[in-house]
Design a protein around this nucleic acid. Structure first.
Length: 423
DNA sequence: TCTGGGGTCCTAGGACCC
DNA sequence: TCTGGGGTCCTAGGACCC
């Protein structure tokens, strides 16, 4: 039997590592990156983790710790991270023809067929090359299945003796890893399932692997649960997906920098999010037929609460920002109630179809070639000259009242001519 | 004062059909 | 007393991921 070999390459503290690239002075300082609006920590270096700052914790709750320990705190700079991610992935493509770019900081490589005696050395070579080419440190896990590669990767990162590469191909390593990793730390097993697993006496990965009643697992934890169990037994269930499929839904939402009370401002934000969503829609050459709008107040604040969503089905699918905004506003007007303190709005496009395959409507207003050409020109200008160089007037010009706060943002070292690193 | 954003998959249950 | 059976399609909501 031709046994598969999956390798998971995962960037260490990815956003933080990106920030460090341009600030070598931060090499030994704790670094953290915040979510939009400078809300919560979404990336932390080991130094910051050691200070007890947990993933997802609100910044204001640990600000004192950060100040006291000279933590370098950054607002998220996603265009920078995406750019560096591309460089990392391009380097990985040199090592394997079949790659699944799983997220901004992770990729699975199919290394089936390589000599198992030397595969660890090969992976160390991959690791060194990525670090040399991009400056981003990575950890690598090697296994027969994706779930096990994830598990191996976890050990590679946690255990310094591995020096960042760990293989569970050897029997002894596999047993060691399975006995050590908690059930809740397995890829695909979240909080709810962890509770259920523990109730039936499954605490470690090895417990699940050895559990005899597969039917029960399937019944209680769905098909996915059974597949995870199989993967722990080195039976591959999750294949490598080398092509990124088109999105079936496109969501754009933001928390406001300041609370919003009036419909006019809410409309501006919804128009802006709709524009962004439409750009993504056109980028994958799709049209959509359903638009959903959601607004809500701040659930953390002691004020009267309100949240509501509604959607509209278009007669003819479209990717025209103007039509989407006008529909979005109709929905918004229907769910808006005066007197609340709004904190967030969301735009979701769904029933997405291929733009050249969808059926035109006999009755609705289909996108004309002029409409499509206009959108194309807008996208081209904005790509070349920067986001919102041209935009629909509905998005507003002065976004200060609602636009997100980013007090600690680093420069656009790679995407803005005026902000290139000076040496 | 201050708490993120963007996705996918699965299942149960209702609507509907013959 | 006693009230079909089987199938498909769709959607909402839960769970999970990074």
């Amino acid at each position: 039997m031709n046994q598969k070999i999956f390798v998971l390459v995962d960037c260490n503290s990815f956003y933080c590592s990106c920030e460090r690239l341009f600030r070598p002075d931060l090499a030994n300082r704790p670094v953290g990156v915040l979510s939009n609006n400078d809300g919560c920590f979404v990336s932390r270096t080991n130094e910051l983790k050691k200070l007890g700052v947990a993933m997802g914790v609100p910044y204001f709750q640990v600000k004192e710790i950060c100040d006291k320990n000279n933590v370098a705190v950054f607002s998220a700079n996603f265009s920078l991270y995406t750019n560096i991610s591309d460089r990392v992935m391009n380097t990985l493509f040199e090592f394997a023809p079949n790659i699944e770019v799983y997220s901004v900081d992770e990729a699975f490589l199919d290394l089936t067929g390589l000599d198992e005696k030397t595969i660890e050395d090969y992976c160390r070579h991959i690791k060194d090359t990525v670090e040399r080419n991009t400056g981003i440190p990575v950890g690598i896990g090697i296994a027969r299945t994706k779930v096990l590669a994830k598990l191996a990767n976890r050990i590679a990162k946690k255990d310094e003796r591995t020096k960042g590469v760990y293989s569970v191909l050897p029997r002894a390593n596999l047993e060691y890893a399975l006995a050590r990793v908690e059930i809740g730390d397995i890829w695909g097993i979240g909080r709810q399932s962890t509770i259920k697993f523990k109730m039936i006496g499954i605490h470690k990965a090895s417990d699940l692997r050895n559990y005899k009643n597969k039917l029960f697992i399937q019944k209680q934890f769905t098909k996915i649960g059974r597949m995870i169990q199989d993967e722990l037994n080195e039976i591959s269930c999750f294949p490598l997906n080398t092509e990124a499929p088109k999105k079936k839904e496109i969501v754009c939402s933001r928390t406001f920098g300041n609370p919003v009370f009036d419909l006019a401002t809410l409309r501006e934000s919804v128009a802006s999010y709709a524009s962004l969503a439409c750009e993504k829609l056109r980028k994958q050459q799709s049209v959509c037929q359903v638009i959903e709008i959601y607004i809500r107040t701040n659930p953390f604040k002691e004020v009267p609460q309100y949240a509501r969503a509604d959607s509209a089905l278009l007669i003819s699918p479209t990717c025209d920002t103007r039509k989407i905004i006008s529909e979005a506003w109709k929905i918004l007007d229907g769910i808006f109630i005066n007197g609340f303190e709004y904190k967030k709005a969301l735009v979701k496009l769904s029933r997405i179809q291929d733009s050249n395959e969808h059926q035109n409507s006999l009755f609705g207003e289909n996108d004309t070639s002029e409409d499509l050409e206009l959108m194309k020109v807008m996208d081209r200008i904005n790509y070349r000259e920067g986001h919102e160089t041209v935009k629909i007037a509905a998005c507003g010009v002065n976004k200060e009242s609602w636009y997100m706060k980013q007090v600690h943002k680093s420069k656009r070292y790679l995407t803005g001519w005026n902000e290139l690193l000076k040496i």
